[in-house]
């Protein structure tokens, strides 16, 4: 860590210190996230192969969704032949947290026009939300925030989509014994491990998991939404008792 004191830039008033470049800061902040995103991108790419998607279809999904977990859920759903409605319900449930993230973005960019704010929330994901929460408390300028946010988005999206292409190519050329078909449940298991901090959350997870084989034979494509609803109901019942 450097101990150097920031010097005023030429042209700035005496005593004024230039704000750090939003672009440079975004590049630096996104580094650790990118390292974690690449294996996830590989997993999504290989899952797309397993589900029988073409590369064009997989890339279309990556670009229009810009949401890895939901993309993986849709890919899995397509692979199972669940149908459009079931895929959309799962997408909505997986991405429900984006409502919260959207509330954060609405505050960050409150000075922008509505159409600009709508464009800015399009690529909003877990990582950019976390970075924004961390950085924007100290940087209130709208232009600074926009540059930081857009650079962070670019830094995350490019390696994620690229790694999906690589995962797709590797997945198509590698034997199933390597276990790439397990990429989706493995990533979901990791994500689940980070969402079990409360008793009701653990109960919701266990109830939903148990419900899958119980209703699977009769509910067909509605199995997942029903299991999820039962899980949430079980967790909520414990919370509100």
């Amino acid at each position: 860590m450097s101990a150097a004191v920031a010097e005023p830039r030429p042209g700035l008033a005496a005593g004024a210190v230039a704000a750090p470049s939003p672009v440079a800061l975004a590049v630096r902040d996104t580094g650790p996230f990118v390292v974690a995103l690449v294996p996830f991108g590989l997993a999504v790419g290989s899952a797309s192969v397993a589900a029988g998607l073409s590369l064009t279809q997989a890339m279309f999904g990556a670009v229009v969704l810009l949401a890895g977990a939901a993309q993986l859920a849709v890919v899995e759903s397509l692979g199972r032949g669940d149908g459009i409605v079931a895929a959309l319900v799962v997408t909505a449930l997986v991405n429900l947290r984006f409502v919260y993230y959207g509330a954060g973005a609405a505050r960050w960019f409150s000075g922008a026009r509505t159409w600009q704010r709508l464009l800015l929330v399009f690529p909003l994901v877990d990582q950019t939300f976390l970075l924004g929460q961390q950085r924007f408390a100290d940087h209130g300028d709208l232009t600074w925030r926009r540059r930081y946010y857009l650079m962070a988005t670019l830094m995350l999206a490019v390696p994620f989509v690229t790694s999906q292409v690589v995962g797709y190519r590797l997945g198509a050329g590698l034997p199933p014994a390597l276990g790439l078909h397990l990429a989706a449940p493995l990533v979901f298991a990791g994500m689940l491990a980070r969402h079990l901090e409360t008793g009701p959350a653990r109960l919701a997870a266990v109830a939903a998991a148990l419900a899958v084989p119980l209703v699977g034979g009769v509910a067909g494509p509605a199995t997942l939404p029903i299991a999820i609803a039962l899980g949430v109901a079980a967790g909520a019942g414990r919370w509100w008792r």
Binding site: V90, F188, A201, L210, T223, G235
Partner: peptide
Amino acid sequence: TALVTPAVLAAMIASALLL
């Protein structure tokens, strides 16, 4: 909302393993 994420993830894992 806090309950939805673990329920979704657990259901998808169970679906991949058990169905």
